[in-house]
């Protein structure tokens, strides 16, 4: 019984939140890693792209809500996703046309592209704040919980409750569908294969008649989809605030680099590694340990290894350790 309680408490406070957060990070990291693989630069505007897409989704959601449209128990934001992805894709294609294409044609060094992405980041940041303001926005509606802590206790008779938010379940399901679709696309379709070929060896791909501009355009569209989905899921789960999305850049990049930049599978694994370590190290283990240890040994303090404010430090330390001992990441990413 004690052990069961411990497992339930662990799932409630660590496993479930970490799985949801990890899925969001993985989707974000996939976007970063695809850009790196195909366009060969680290896109610092990715966090703000996520913020922009989420903002568009929120605006559509508000419009739908004002029309009285809803998805019943599911959040209305899901209905707004396609439109938000379309708008964000147009934006990204626009920035590519106006900013990045010039440097690509010049064969500029990647660092210049990174600095250009600083500029895009500042502009997007300004646009988002201009349109929706710097404050917090909540846009989740529908059923809040799949199962509440109270129901769980009543059902099982345990002391500990397990609450699963709708948004957490939704995040996992959506992430699985999106990742499956992405891998199917990359591995099974002609376009996907041409993208991988382009990523592996640009010159060879050009020789075999692959149109680079088409590959780049498709990459941006896919990245728009990934960024918007990741951003909306994160916003539904927590809340939307432009600055938080900018700060997501660090864990997202850490996930992509830990997995190996340019490697999609690595991005997913990296996302979960970062999320589990962040949640695990900042969680106060007192409750779980209290169930597992004999009464006399039960800890006095909170047994929290790090205060939650240091969560950036966790992604950072993992990042540095991986870079020191395995510089190309766990899954052999590429180096430009």
């Amino acid at each position: 019984m004690e052990a069961l309680n411990a497992i339930v408490a662990l799932s409630n406070f660590v496993l479930v939140p970490a799985i949801a957060y990890g899925s969001q990070l993985a989707l974000g990291a996939l976007g970063v890693t695809l850009i790196y693989g195909i366009l060969r630069f680290s896109n610092f505007a990715h966090g703000d792209t996520m913020a922009f897409g989420t903002m568009v989704a929120i605006l559509f959601t508000w419009w739908l809500q004002s029309m009285g449209v809803s998805l019943g128990p599911l959040p209305t934001a899901l209905l707004a996703l396609p439109a938000a992805i379309a708008v964000t894709a147009l934006l990204l294609l626009g920035t590519d046309r106006l900013v990045y294409r010039f440097y690509r044609a010049q064969k500029a060094v990647p660092v210049i592209m990174v600095i250009a992405s600083f500029g895009v980041m500042l502009v997007l940041n300004g646009v988002v704040r201009l349109i929706i303001g710097p404050g917090d926005q909540r846009f989740a509606d529908g059923e809040r919980f799949i199962i509440t802590a109270l129901d769980f206790r009543r059902m099982t008779g345990l002391d500990e409750g397990l609450a699963i938010k709708t948004t957490q379940g939704l995040t996992l399901v959506t992430a699985v569908i999106v990742v499956a679709a992405l891998f199917w696309f990359l591995n099974r379709t002609r376009t996907g294969k041409s993208m991988r070929a382009f990523s592996d060896n640009e010159d060879l791909a050009l020789l075999s008649g692959i149109n680079p501009e088409r590959v780049v355009a498709i990459t941006w569209i896919i990245v728009a989809g990934l960024a918007v989905i990741a951003g909306v899921l994160y916003g539904l789960d927590k809340s939307f605030k432009p600055f938080t999305y900018f700060q997501l850049l660090l864990p997202v990049f850490a996930s992509a680099i830990v997995g190996g930049l340019g490697n999609p599978l690595g991005a997913i694994v990296g996302g979960y590694i970062i999320a589990f370590s962040e949640v695990g190290l900042t969680y106060a283990w007192k409750k779980v340990l209290g169930y597992l240890m004999p009464e006399s040994l039960a800890p006095d303090g909170l047994v929290q290894l790090l205060s939650t404010d240091y969560k950036f430090a966790v992604s950072f330390v993992i990042l540095v350790l991986v870079l020191l001992f395995r510089p190309t990441g766990l899954f052999r990413g590429k180096a430009v």
Partner: peptide, 28 residues
């Protein structure tokens, strides 16, 4: 000592992370 050997964009991420940690430290 730890990060300079890394490629340029890794160094960028590493320094970005360090600066966030320093601010978190000052705040906490």
């Amino acid at each position: 000592k730890t990060a300079l050997g890394l490629r340029s964009d890794y160094l960028a991420i590493a320094t970005l992370g360090i600066s966030e940690i320093i601010i978190a430290m000052l705040k906490n």
